[in-house]
Design a protein around this nucleic acid. Structure first.
Lengths: 113, 113
DNA sequence: CTTTAGTACCTTGCATTGCAAGTTACCTTT
DNA sequence: AAAGGTAACTTGCAATGCAAGGTACTAAAG
């Protein structure tokens, strides 16, 4: 199906922001992030998330804390650094700007400035 | 700069929709599309646009008409096919859904429906 | 007529990156 | 000990945005 691929495309590039936003609410480990995003209909999978988290970490935008789990292997809780918070603000600004541009493009009449 | 790269990332996947939307207003040739997108602050370049137009064409979403130019080489005017119109509708729906998801993620309180 | 400049089309190759699939490791239960 | 569940991570592929380069046509300048 073409449409599936296209909507998948649209999610690209927004993931970074979404993950930062998810973690900014409260520290989370990977599976929690996946479930959180899924709960707002943003399907992400492990193979996407882990490399992205690694990138965000090496960029200094997130840190993590290991914590033992009552049942199962230890968990790596990710949380935003101060840099990450600033960056998330910039990303949301960029996102809003994009949304605005697209709105103007699709519906040129409603320029509410 | 990190932020530039990130906002560039966000534009990915939305381009297809934007190009279809631009052409749907009236038939345009490549340079006009570029200028139109630039006018709403969506910077796209030739190297991106031409392969994408080729993809849209081979997917049957756009057609084109050659037309002589008073000054310069002939122009290839792109226009939406009926399939393309349907597809554009689906894309905008997907875009709205994405926007909604992100809104819920970033600002969980304002669930207006 | 030849050269330069402008416009328009298109292609090649690289780097990024989302994702499917597979791997390792720990803990609990049978 | 074996099986199952959870969690972290890696590898390799395919898609794709984009910089850079190339071709072709017209008009104007030399």
């Amino acid at each position: 199906m073409k449409i599936d691929n296209a909507t998948a495309q649209m999610r690209k590039g927004v993931l970074e922001m979404c993950i930062l936003a998810s973690v900014s609410i409260e520290r989370k480990y990977a599976t929690e992030i996946l479930n959180h995003l899924k709960s707002v209909d943003l399907i992400v999978v492990e193979g996407t998330l882990y490399p992205l988290l690694a990138r965000l970490r090496s960029a200094g935008l997130v840190g993590y804390e290991w914590e033992e789990s009552a049942s199962g292997p230890p968990r790596k809780y990710y949380l935003l650094t101060k840099e990450g918070e600033l960056f998330l603000n910039e990303l949301t600004s960029g996102w809003n700007a994009l949304h605005n541009s697209v709105k103007n493009l699709i519906n040129p009449k409603s320029k509410k400035s």
